[in-house]
Design a protein around this nucleic acid. Structure first.
Lengths: 160, 160
DNA sequence: TATTTATTGACAGTATACTGTCAATTAGTT
DNA sequence: AACTAATTGACAGTATACTGTCAATAAATA
């Protein structure tokens, strides 16, 4: 009867649910969701990236990313500029307020990340993160949008 | 630069993304999402449960659950019957085809659950599930809809 | 160079998830 | 019994996520 509650599928869903809840709570005053935060960080790390590459860098669906960027743009955190070389793409940049927001939200994000693991002992926290990192990495190709961190470097001419 | 990829928030989101992807892939022929599956199992275990209690049993948002049940009903897997005692509630039951579906989908679900953890060694799988179970349990009150498995027994007059 | 193929962003459609509100109804209190 | 609280299901609104399609454009190839 209790079998469901010990299965990985249930635990992963529930943990994600809790993690989002904590993030939103800690970052309420900044009005930023986990996804929006991840996108902002990636744009900061790769200024001038385009939407398709961004989706690979943060392992996001491209279809979803469009509306995420739209919201970030309407809040004034991000700018979209047409590329000179390729008329199809729009390059993404943080605005000055967007960069400031990212600096200011940092403590709240750190608090959120810490709270997610807070109930565990330090050694258990480390163990869990290690195992999850391995599992996510080894399962990378499974989802529709596998993580491709190296893609982000291409637009800087550092492709491998 | 790679800091994000080692943070719990990222790993939980990514793992959930991968888990859903695997589930949908393995269960494609049955046209059932993880959420719909969880709801069906809970209704099977607690025939005559109402939507509000169901949401507590599977740790789901009540608002979301409405449309989930609607879809299950339109597929013919679930029946909603008005309660005689309380005119507000609608009691949930599996249909015969719904129960059959649940029997038939079982191997696919088991395959999915196994695949999620497949890349890890057996001892690591066990360790990960143990740690995650603890963490989810200890963080239970955080999210909007904490798990209340005991709620499911009330409608059978077994409340504590 | 002309044709095919691939990429990019946009969009339509479905399915979770959440916040918040509402009316109908029930339960608890005075 | 009358009033108040709480519960229930429904709904409106926002934000992920996914599948799949499309036109514009670019790249590869015949």
């Amino acid at each position: 009867m209790d079998a469901v509650y010990t299965k990985p599928g249930y635990l992963f869903r529930r943990m994600q649910q809790i993690a989002v809840s904590i993030f939103v709570e800690e970052c309420r005053e900044f009005d930023l969701t986990p996804v929006q935060y991840a996108a902002l960080v990636a744009i900061q790390n790769h200024p001038g990236i385009d939407a398709t590459r961004l989706s690979a860098v943060i392992a996001f669906d491209r279809s979803t990313l469009g509306s995420v960027i739209e919201r970030l743009e309407s809040k004034g955190h991000v700018e979209r500029k047409p590329s000179a070389e390729d008329k199809r793409v729009k390059l993404l940049y943080l605005t000055r307020p967007g960069a400031a927001l990212l600096r200011n939200i940092m403590p709240a994000v750190d608090r959120a990340q810490a709270r997610m693991l807070a109930p565990l002992k330090a050694t258990d926290r480390k163990m869990l993160m290690t195992l999850l990192s391995q599992l996510v990495d080894l399962n990378n190709e499974v989802s529709r949008v596998p993580l491709r961190a190296e893609d982000a470097l291409e637009h800087l001419g550092k492709a491998g």
